[in-house]
Amino acid sequence: MLYSEKVMDHFRNPRNVGEMPDADGIGEVGNAKCGDIMRMYIKVKNNIITDVKFMTFGCGSAIATSSMATELIKGKPIEDAVKLSNKAVVEALGGLPTHKLHCSVLAEEAVKAAVKDYYDKHNISYNKKEYAASECACVIEHKNAKSKQAKSAACKTNKTDKKSSATKSAKSKTTKTTSKSVTKTKTSKKA
Protein backbone atom coordinates (compact mmCIF):
# COMPACT_ATOMS: atom_id res chain seq x y z
CA MET A 1 0.00 0.00 0.00
CA LEU A 2 1.29 3.42 -0.90
CA TYR A 3 -0.26 5.06 2.16
CA SER A 4 -1.05 3.87 5.68
CA GLU A 5 -4.65 3.64 6.85
CA LYS A 6 -4.18 6.73 8.98
CA VAL A 7 -2.96 8.76 6.01
CA MET A 8 -5.88 7.50 3.92
CA ASP A 9 -8.28 8.43 6.72
CA HIS A 10 -6.97 12.00 6.80
CA PHE A 11 -7.11 12.09 3.04
CA ARG A 12 -10.66 10.75 2.75
CA ASN A 13 -11.96 12.65 5.76
CA PRO A 14 -9.78 15.71 6.06
CA ARG A 15 -10.30 17.65 9.27
CA ASN A 16 -10.76 21.44 9.27
CA VAL A 17 -11.16 21.98 5.54
CA GLY A 18 -12.52 25.36 4.62
CA GLU A 19 -12.06 29.09 4.50
CA MET A 20 -12.01 31.57 7.33
CA PRO A 21 -13.12 35.03 6.21
CA ASP A 22 -12.23 36.56 9.58
CA ALA A 23 -8.88 34.83 10.00
CA ASP A 24 -6.25 36.44 12.17
CA GLY A 25 -3.47 34.96 10.07
CA ILE A 26 -3.27 33.29 6.69
CA GLY A 27 -0.25 31.44 5.31
CA GLU A 28 0.09 29.99 1.84
CA VAL A 29 3.11 27.93 0.85
CA GLY A 30 4.13 25.75 -2.00
CA ASN A 31 4.19 26.16 -5.67
CA ALA A 32 1.78 25.13 -8.41
CA LYS A 33 4.85 24.10 -10.38
CA CYS A 34 5.67 21.27 -8.03
CA GLY A 35 2.04 20.45 -7.57
CA ASP A 36 1.48 21.20 -3.88
CA ILE A 37 -0.01 24.35 -2.38
CA MET A 38 -1.23 24.68 1.19
CA ARG A 39 -3.16 27.56 2.64
CA MET A 40 -3.73 27.70 6.38
CA TYR A 41 -6.04 30.07 8.27
CA ILE A 42 -5.73 30.62 12.01
CA LYS A 43 -7.86 32.34 14.61
CA VAL A 44 -5.92 33.49 17.65
CA LYS A 45 -7.27 34.54 21.05
CA ASN A 46 -5.08 35.18 24.08
CA ASN A 47 -2.19 33.68 22.20
CA ILE A 48 -4.03 30.40 21.68
CA ILE A 49 -4.95 29.09 18.24
CA THR A 50 -8.67 28.75 18.77
CA ASP A 51 -9.57 27.73 15.25
CA VAL A 52 -7.74 26.59 12.16
CA LYS A 53 -8.81 25.81 8.61
CA PHE A 54 -6.95 24.72 5.53
CA MET A 55 -7.23 24.45 1.77
CA THR A 56 -4.82 22.32 -0.22
CA PHE A 57 -4.03 21.70 -3.88
CA GLY A 58 -2.00 18.52 -3.92
CA CYS A 59 -1.70 14.79 -3.63
CA GLY A 60 -2.90 12.40 -0.94
CA SER A 61 0.09 13.20 1.29
CA ALA A 62 -0.42 16.93 0.90
CA ILE A 63 -4.07 16.75 1.96
CA ALA A 64 -3.38 14.30 4.78
CA THR A 65 -0.47 16.27 6.21
CA SER A 66 -2.46 19.51 6.04
CA SER A 67 -5.32 17.86 7.88
CA MET A 68 -3.04 16.38 10.56
CA ALA A 69 -1.16 19.64 11.00
CA THR A 70 -4.39 21.51 11.71
CA GLU A 71 -5.35 18.89 14.30
CA LEU A 72 -1.95 19.17 15.96
CA ILE A 73 -2.03 22.95 16.35
CA LYS A 74 -5.69 23.53 17.18
CA GLY A 75 -6.08 24.69 20.78
CA LYS A 76 -2.35 25.11 21.22
CA PRO A 77 -0.46 28.27 22.21
CA ILE A 78 1.13 29.99 19.24
CA GLU A 79 4.67 29.41 20.51
CA ASP A 80 4.00 25.65 20.56
CA ALA A 81 2.25 25.59 17.21
CA VAL A 82 5.22 27.25 15.56
CA LYS A 83 7.49 24.50 16.83
CA LEU A 84 5.49 21.89 14.91
CA SER A 85 7.99 19.88 12.91
CA ASN A 86 7.29 17.94 9.75
CA LYS A 87 8.67 14.93 11.58
CA ALA A 88 5.88 15.20 14.14
CA VAL A 89 3.27 15.39 11.41
CA VAL A 90 4.68 12.31 9.68
CA GLU A 91 4.89 10.38 12.95
CA ALA A 92 1.33 11.30 13.82
CA LEU A 93 0.27 9.91 10.46
CA GLY A 94 2.17 6.69 10.99
CA GLY A 95 4.71 7.43 8.31
CA LEU A 96 4.85 8.50 4.68
CA PRO A 97 6.68 7.04 1.67
CA THR A 98 10.15 8.60 1.33
CA HIS A 99 9.39 10.48 -1.87
CA LYS A 100 6.34 12.03 -0.18
CA LEU A 101 8.11 13.46 2.85
CA HIS A 102 8.41 16.90 1.24
CA CYS A 103 4.65 17.28 1.57
CA SER A 104 5.01 17.22 5.34
CA VAL A 105 7.62 19.98 5.14
CA LEU A 106 4.99 22.12 3.44
CA ALA A 107 2.61 21.53 6.36
CA GLU A 108 5.23 22.77 8.82
CA GLU A 109 5.88 25.82 6.64
CA ALA A 110 2.20 26.62 6.23
CA VAL A 111 1.80 26.86 10.00
CA LYS A 112 4.83 29.16 10.23
CA ALA A 113 3.53 31.29 7.38
CA ALA A 114 0.12 31.67 9.02
CA VAL A 115 1.71 32.65 12.32
CA LYS A 116 4.05 35.10 10.58
CA ASP A 117 1.07 36.68 8.88
CA TYR A 118 -0.67 36.99 12.25
CA TYR A 119 2.39 38.66 13.77
CA ASP A 120 2.70 41.00 10.77
CA LYS A 121 -0.94 41.99 10.88
CA HIS A 122 -0.86 42.67 14.61
CA ASN A 123 2.54 44.37 14.67
CA ILE A 124 4.02 41.75 16.95
CA SER A 125 7.76 41.48 16.75
CA TYR A 126 9.46 38.20 15.99
CA ASN A 127 12.79 36.85 14.82
CA LYS A 128 12.55 37.42 11.07
CA LYS A 129 15.23 34.83 10.37
CA GLU A 130 13.19 32.03 11.87
CA TYR A 131 10.26 32.83 9.61
CA ALA A 132 12.20 33.46 6.42
CA ALA A 133 10.38 32.05 3.43
CA SER A 134 12.30 29.06 2.19
CA GLU A 135 12.31 28.01 -1.41
CA CYS A 136 10.34 24.94 -2.26
CA ALA A 137 12.60 21.91 -2.63
CA CYS A 138 11.59 21.33 -6.22
CA VAL A 139 12.55 24.88 -7.22
CA ILE A 140 16.00 24.26 -5.75
CA GLU A 141 16.19 20.94 -7.59
CA HIS A 142 15.30 22.60 -10.86
CA LYS A 143 18.06 25.15 -10.35
CA ASN A 144 20.53 22.32 -9.87
CA ALA A 145 19.10 20.24 -12.69
CA LYS A 146 21.70 18.91 -15.08
CA SER A 147 19.55 17.81 -17.97
CA LYS A 148 18.39 20.27 -20.59
CA GLN A 149 14.79 19.18 -20.26
CA ALA A 150 14.65 19.85 -16.52
CA LYS A 151 16.23 23.26 -17.02
CA SER A 152 13.84 24.31 -19.74
CA ALA A 153 10.96 23.16 -17.60
CA ALA A 154 12.26 25.34 -14.77
CA CYS A 155 12.46 28.36 -17.08
CA LYS A 156 8.79 28.08 -17.88
CA THR A 157 7.86 28.51 -14.21
CA ASN A 158 4.95 30.70 -13.38
CA LYS A 159 6.84 33.47 -11.64
CA THR A 160 3.95 34.61 -9.43
CA ASP A 161 4.90 34.50 -5.79
CA LYS A 162 1.98 32.68 -4.21
CA LYS A 163 2.78 33.95 -0.69
CA SER A 164 2.48 37.61 -1.55
CA SER A 165 -0.70 37.04 -3.48
CA ALA A 166 -2.18 35.20 -0.50
CA THR A 167 -1.49 38.05 1.93
CA LYS A 168 -2.76 40.53 -0.66
CA SER A 169 -5.99 38.62 -1.14
CA ALA A 170 -6.37 38.31 2.64
CA LYS A 171 -6.24 42.09 3.07
CA SER A 172 -8.54 42.84 0.15
CA LYS A 173 -11.04 40.04 0.72
CA THR A 174 -13.79 42.44 1.67
CA THR A 175 -13.40 44.60 -1.41
CA LYS A 176 -12.88 41.95 -4.08
CA THR A 177 -16.01 40.51 -5.62
CA THR A 178 -16.43 38.46 -8.74
CA SER A 179 -19.52 37.38 -10.59
CA LYS A 180 -18.66 33.73 -9.95
CA SER A 181 -18.48 33.36 -6.21
CA VAL A 182 -17.17 30.11 -4.90
CA THR A 183 -19.65 28.17 -2.79
CA LYS A 184 -18.83 27.87 0.88
CA THR A 185 -16.79 24.82 1.63
CA LYS A 186 -18.49 22.15 3.69
CA THR A 187 -16.17 20.21 5.95
CA SER A 188 -15.37 16.58 5.20
CA LYS A 189 -17.82 16.22 2.35
CA LYS A 190 -17.05 12.95 0.58
CA ALA A 191 -17.53 12.96 -3.20
Partner: peptide, 22 residues
Protein backbone atom coordinates in the same frame (compact mmCIF):
# COMPACT_ATOMS: atom_id res chain seq x y z
CA UNK B 1 -17.44 15.36 -11.90
CA UNK B 2 -18.29 14.81 -8.22
CA UNK B 3 -14.67 14.13 -7.34
CA UNK B 4 -13.42 17.12 -9.33
CA UNK B 5 -15.95 19.30 -7.58
CA UNK B 6 -14.96 17.98 -4.14
CA UNK B 7 -11.26 18.58 -4.75
CA UNK B 8 -11.89 22.02 -6.20
CA UNK B 9 -13.80 23.06 -3.09
CA UNK B 10 -10.71 22.47 -0.97
CA UNK B 11 -8.21 23.86 -3.47
CA UNK B 12 -6.62 27.26 -2.85
CA UNK B 13 -5.66 27.31 -6.55
CA UNK B 14 -9.30 26.93 -7.59
CA UNK B 15 -10.27 29.49 -4.99
CA UNK B 16 -7.88 32.01 -6.53
CA UNK B 17 -9.07 31.19 -10.03
CA UNK B 18 -12.70 31.67 -9.09
CA UNK B 19 -12.07 34.87 -7.18
CA UNK B 20 -10.02 36.35 -10.00
CA UNK B 21 -6.65 36.42 -8.22
CA UNK B 22 -5.35 34.11 -10.92
Amino acid sequence: PKIVDYLRKMSPVWDELEKGGR
